[in-house]
């Protein structure tokens, strides 16, 4: 009984990992399922945030202090993951910024930020180009025969 309780406690004690997994899957799902480009970027941010949590979790030691060099503290949290995630957050922000800037430009160029609408317009462009390209060469081809 105590064994089971301990295991349950152990499982519950990893709750932040479960949250990380939840964020990861949810973020990826949003990227996959949503056609709206801004929503995709939100999903991407969620997905990246999960990684921050994944890194930070093992870095924190229960009862540990901040990594301050002082003889009174023997147990302190590993500073490295925090530093890494600081960098990763910067990278994430930069990505989001570039992504949003692209979406703004796409909206200006297409008047839409829905992927399926944009594809429909691209397809129309391709068909127009093919038509324009196929006319003169066919004539030239016949002449060459």
């Amino acid at each position: 009984m105590t064994d089971l309780l301990a295991r349950l406690g152990n499982i519950a004690g990893h709750y932040n990992l479960y949250i990380a997994i939840l964020l990861m899957v949810a973020g990826l799902y949003v990227v996959i399922a949503r056609g709206n480009m801004v929503k995709k970027l939100i999903g991407l941010s969620l997905f990246q945030s999960s990684v921050y949590l994944l890194y930070l979790t093992p870095g924190k030691i229960l009862g540990g202090t901040a990594p301050v060099v002082d003889p009174r503290f023997a147990i302190y949290s590993n500073p490295l993951p925090h530093v890494l995630i600081l960098t990763a957050i910067v990278v994430g922000i930069a990505t989001l910024a570039v992504g949003l800037a692209l979406v703004v430009r796409i909206n200006e160029a297409y008047g839409s930020i829905e992927e399926d609408e944009i594809f429909a317009r691209d397809e129309a462009t391709v068909k127009r180009e093919d038509r324009a390209a196929s006319r003169p060469p066919r004539r030239a081809g016949k002449g060459a025969r």
């Binding site: 970027l41 991407l44 990246q48 990684v51 890194y55 990763a88 990505t95 992504g99 430009r105 160029a109």
Partner: peptide, 29 residues
């Protein structure tokens, strides 16, 4: 203008790839 869409798609995919990579590095760490 299709360059914008291409860049956007690459951004999403590239970021997912890089994030996968960094997750993997986390496990190794």
């Amino acid at each position: 203008r299709r360059a914008l869409v291409a860049a956007y798609q690459y951004l999403i995919i590239g970021t997912i790839g890089a994030t996968f990579y960094v997750i993997g590095v986390g496990f190794l760490f």
